[in-house]
C-alpha cells in the first residue's frame, strides 16, 4: 500500500520533471535552429520521412472517416428531415475536431515514434557522441531539423486529412444518399466560417504539430542508450503525445468557443 503511494508520488515527480525538461529542451531547439533553415536541405529530408511517408495513412484514414461520418450523420439527420445538412456535419466535425486530433494521433504513432526511435538509436550506438566529438552539435544537426519537419508536416497533413474527409462525405452524400451536389455545397458555404472553423482548425494542427515534435525529439534524446531504452522511449512518445494532444484540444476548444 505504502509502496503504491510512494510509486504514485515518484511518478508524479518524474512527470513534472519531464514537463520541465521538455520546456527547456524546446528552448534549446529554438536556440539551435539556425542550421535547419540555413541548410534547408536537412529539414526537407526530414519532411520527407515525417510528412511524405505519412501521406498514405493520413489520406486513406481521412477518406474513410469522412465517409463514416457521412453515413452516421445521414442516419441521424434524416429523422429530422435535415439530411441536406449532412455535408455541414461532416465538414464542421472534421475542420474543428477530428481533422487536427485524429491526424495528430496518427502522426504521433507514425512519424513521432519513428523520430524517437531514430534519435534514440543514434544515441544508443554513440552516433550522437561521435558527432559531438566531430565538433558538430547534434542539437542543430539532428534534433532541430526533425523538430521543424514535424512542426511543418503536421498542419499540412491535417489539411489533407480534412479535405479528403470532406470529399469522402461528399461521395457518400452524392452517390449513396443522393443529395444534390449544389445543395451539398451551398449548405456548406452557409454554415462553414473561415475564421471560426477553418482557421481555428489550422491553429490546432500547428499547436499539435509543435507539441508532438517536441515530445518525439525529447524522448529520443533522453532515451536510455540501450535497445530496451529506445523501445520504452518510443512507447512513451506515443502515449505522451496522445494525452498531450487531447488535453491541448480541450484547452484550445475552450478558448475558441468562448469567442463565438
Amino acid at each position: 500500500m505504502i509502496d503504491a503511494i510512494r510509486n504514485l508520488g515518484s511518478r508524479g515527480i518524474s512527470s513534472v520533471w519531464r514537463a520541465g525538461a521538455m520546456a527547456r529542451f524546446f528552448m534549446l531547439i529554438l536556440a539551435n535552429s539556425g542550421m535547419s533553415f540555413r541548410r534547408f536541405q536537412l529539414t526537407i529530408r526530414e519532411i520527407y520521412f515525417a510528412g511524405v511517408m505519412s501521406l498514405v495513412i493520413i489520406m486513406v484514414s481521412g477518406l474513410f472517416i469522412g465517409m463514416v461520418l457521412g453515413l452516421q450523420g445521414f442516419e441521424t439527420l434524416q429523422r429530422y428531415n435535415a439530411e441536406e445538412t449532412m455535408g455541414v456535419l461532416v465538414a464542421l466535425t472534421l475542420l474543428r475536431e477530428l481533422g487536427p486530433v485524429v491526424t495528430a494521433l496518427l502522426f504521433a504513432s507514425r512519424a513521432g515514434s519513428a523520430i524517437t526511435a531514430e534519435i534514440g538509436l543514434m544515441k544508443a550506438t554513440e552516433q550522437l557522441k561521435a558527432m559531438d566529438m566531430m565538433a558538430i552539435d547534434p542539437m542543430s544537426r539532428v534534433v532541430a531539423p526533425r523538430f521543424w519537419a514535424g512542426a511543418i508536416s503536421m498542419p499540412v497533413l491535417a489539411a489533407l486529412f480534412s479535405s479528403t474527409g470532406i470529399f469522402g462525405g461528399y461521395l457518400v452524400a452524392i452517390l449513396l444518399v443522393g443529395i444534390d451536389s449544389g445543395v451539398f455545397w451551398s449548405n456548406l458555404h452557409a454554415a462553414v466560417d473561415f475564421r471560426y472553423d477553418v482557421l481555428n482548425g489550422i491553429v490546432k494542427s500547428v499547436v499539435f504539430g509543435v507539441a508532438i515534435s517536441i515530445i518525439a525529439t525529447f524522448e529520443g534524446f533522453d532515451a536510455d542508450p540501450t535497445a530496451e531504452g529506445v523501445a520504452r522511449a518510443t512507447t512513451r512518445t506515443v502515449v505522451t503525445s496522445a494525452l498531450t494532444v487531447l488535453l491541448l484540444d480541450l484547452i484550445l476548444t475552450g478558448f475558441m468557443l468562448r469567442g463565438d
Partner: peptide
C-alpha cells in the same frame, strides 16, 4: 568509438 558509431 568502441563500435565504430558510423552513421547508419
Amino acid at each position: 568509438f568502441q563500435f565504430g558509431a558510423l552513421f547508419t
